[in-house]
Design a binder for these strands. Sequence first.
RNA 1: GGUCCAGUAACUCAGAGGUAGAGUAUCUGCCUUUUAAGCAGAGAGUCGAUGGUUCGAUCCCAUCCUGGAUCACCA
Length: 497
Amino acid sequence: MENFNQLVAIRRQKLQKIKNLGINPYPNRVKRTHTIGNLIEHKDKYLKNQKKVTVNGRLNAMRRQGKIGFANITDETGRIQLYVRQDEVGNENYEVFKLLDLGDFVQVEGECFLTQRGEYSVKATNVLILCKNLRPIPTVKEKEVDGEKKRYDEFSDIELRYRKRYLDLLLNPGNKRNFELRARVITAIRSFLDNRGFLEVETPILQSLYGGANARPFMTHHNTLDIDLYLRISIELYLKRLIVGGFERVYELGKTFRNEGMDRNHNPEFTLLELYQAYADYYDIMDLTEDMIIHVVKEVFNSDKIVFQEKEISLKKPWKRVSIFELIKEETGFDASGLNFERIKAFCEEKDIEIEPTAGPGKLIEEIFKTFVESKLIQPTFVTDFPKEISPLAKSKPGNSELAERFELFINGDEYANAFTELNDPIDQRERLETQSRLRELGDVEANVVDEDFLEALEYGMPPTGGLGVGIDRLIMLITENTSIKEVILFPQMKPE
RNA sequence: GGUCCAGUAACUCAGAGGUAGAGUAUCUGCCUUUUAAGCAGAGAGUCGAUGGUUCGAUCCCAUCCUGGAUCACCA
């Protein structure tokens, strides 16, 4: 640290020297006639017309040789070399140039030309400091070998990259791509839904009761009302209230919070898309989900497939639709469709699947599915016929009241969406939530709570409705070929240092 | 939470039971077409933390901290 402090102290001294020259190292106003990208794009024009240009950027390389110096500056659009001569900028300005450090922001006026080595550069007539950097930025150097960029001393410590994301973005500009793609995915989702007549809404994140998923919440406290509040674990119950209120197509894209374990698929706050469509069922939602993801990938990559670590995933319709029981049977030979608790339990014991005391047959079926089937589902697959027991907000299936009209979408072995034909029978819904409540009393900390206000809304009548939830971070991981959620969240949760 | 791996200079890394090294960055000097500029010199580290073993620990052992991988748990 001592050394680091010395490096900082040297920069502070330079800052003082700049001030002593009567120069403001943090000026308010900036002149910029061209972006660097523009200079590069119209290279021939600027070489020919020898017009004066003014560019801004951050210094990220410096090669001084006595009375001349070369530097590279970068703005968001590109990088260009500066050529600074003492006899061109004058002695005073050259003194300022000598006080610059890597990481400083500068404004440079000059004209474009080619150096003897053929490098397109700006020959400076004036160099102005826009912001003095006080902390040395880790050095990353690049060399082009056969058109390929070779990097030296890359800023690659994963922990540092997440904790100091600004340095990661600065030093590994390639990592900006994940976040640019993220923005484009979200834009594409919005335009898709907007075009289909969905209304984007915002519902409370602070809730006095949480629900819509099985998860443990974060708690907080409101001082004026002197009540505990929860951060939402899903958006479901409020969007359904809006369907009761007469909106027929609504969606919300927003942060949701679950107080659970963290790993490469889980961050405590994550982005969820939920949508509800009146007069639709889960078959309609399957169609919609297919169309939406196809639209997104088409918008972002102009492609109808995704390549994830050499696995090619085709998005061509129709996607496979298959019952969870069929998949289990295919993988294990075990037929669980009778929902016979004793038989299923025996199978789980045989396969060493842990059985929680509150688990019923449905829960065990889900466990069997996760253990034997999930990772095999590479191509997009709608898994249907989830047991009603583990689907307390979904309508049951005509002809088999123990199953729910619910699907989960699996791609590349991970779950991307969860959807139901929504339960709109208020009496049935009350019974389901009360069952959940009993499970909670038996020790299932993630069981749903009874939300009287939601039940009351249902009693006023919710039309038949199809609903969908999509984990957006995971969708972006899939599209950007990342295996850690931390790579697609700008500031992932970390333990305090 | 279990298991495994990692933590050494600002960055990327080497090292070894005897008190710490390289490249880059930084500083000084030389240098008016360089581009991982060059040449010469210099400074810079509580070797993640705390205990233990030892004449001596950064190295061996234990515990802890942080991160990663994986398993478990989890919508």
